[in-house]
Simulated assay, not measured.
Amino acid sequence: MRTTRPRPRPPAAYLRYYPQNPSAANRDRIALRSFAARLGLPTPVLYLDNGCPATGLRPELERLITAVMKGNHRLLVVPGLWVFSPEDDQARLTVRMLSAAGCLRIFELPDRARRPVVPGPASLRIPCQKRPGL
């Protein structure tokens, strides 16, 4: 009798930028994919809140937490905890929320743990809840 091993759950990857920064998001997406491969993990499922402030609505973070609660992901890769909030206390609160939801481990890129300072034009500072299509 053959038993079929269940497919491993893919890890999740989360990115958040405010203001919107498509080039940084693309660069970090590639870095997270490469980092997951170096860890021997499948390609992560990306959750991207591009243009969402840490204090506003973050629909993709909400989707991520829901997916973790449903058991779709147990591992998360991020460039640094700053993606959750520039405030350490708030970032740690989000980490605790993800852990309570069922996330077993959060991997940070070793060389990107510090939040980059990326200036952006004021015209791109559109809060998530006001962006079209959400």
Rank of each mutant, 00 (worst) to 15 (best):
P10N: 07
A36C: 15
R74F: 10
A54K: 02
L39C: 04
R114W: 08
Q129R: 15
I65F: 04
P110I: 05
G133Y: 13
L98C: 05
N21D: 14
E108H: 01
R131S: 08
R29P: 04
K130H: 08
A100L: 10
Q90L: 08
P79S: 02
R114E: 11
T94N: 06
T94E: 07
R96C: 07
P121R: 12
E87K: 08
V78F: 02
L124P: 01
V68F: 03
G133E: 11
R58K: 12
Q129D: 12
V95M: 11
I65K: 14
L109D: 01
F84G: 00
R125S: 15
I30Y: 03
P53H: 04
R38S: 11
N21F: 01
A91Q: 11
L75P: 06
G80Y: 10
I126T: 12
R92P: 01
R105D: 05
A100Y: 09
H73P: 12
G56R: 08
G120Q: 12
D111P: 00
R92F: 05
R92K: 11
Y14Q: 05
P86R: 04
P110K: 02
A12V: 10
P11E: 06
Q20F: 02
A13V: 10
A101P: 14
T55E: 13
D28K: 00
P53D: 09
L81A: 03
R7I: 09
A91F: 09
T4Y: 09
C103P: 02
A113S: 10
V118T: 14
L48K: 00
L57Q: 06
P8W: 04
S34I: 08
T66F: 13
R5N: 11
F35H: 14
K130S: 05
D28A: 00
R74E: 08
I126P: 02
D28V: 06
L93V: 03
G80C: 03
H73M: 10
H73L: 10
M69I: 10
D89P: 02
R7F: 07
V77I: 15
L15W: 00
M69L: 12
L75H: 14
A54I: 03
P53N: 11
P42K: 04
S99Y: 08
Q90D: 09
S85N: 13
V68C: 09
N50I: 08
V77T: 15
R105E: 14
D89G: 07
A13D: 01
R9H: 13
Y17N: 02
T3I: 14
S123G: 00
L109Y: 02
P22Q: 01
C128F: 04
D49S: 03
I30V: 13
L15F: 00
R33K: 07
G56D: 14
P59Y: 05
P8A: 13
L15R: 00
D111T: 13
V95L: 12
T94Y: 09
A122V: 15
S23A: 08
F107A: 00
Q129Y: 11
L57S: 07
R114H: 10
S34R: 13
F35P: 03
P79Y: 05
R16L: 04
L109T: 05
A13L: 03
E108W: 05
P121T: 04
A36G: 06
P127I: 06
G80E: 08
R131V: 11
V68Y: 01
V77K: 01
P11I: 12
E62V: 12
V77M: 14
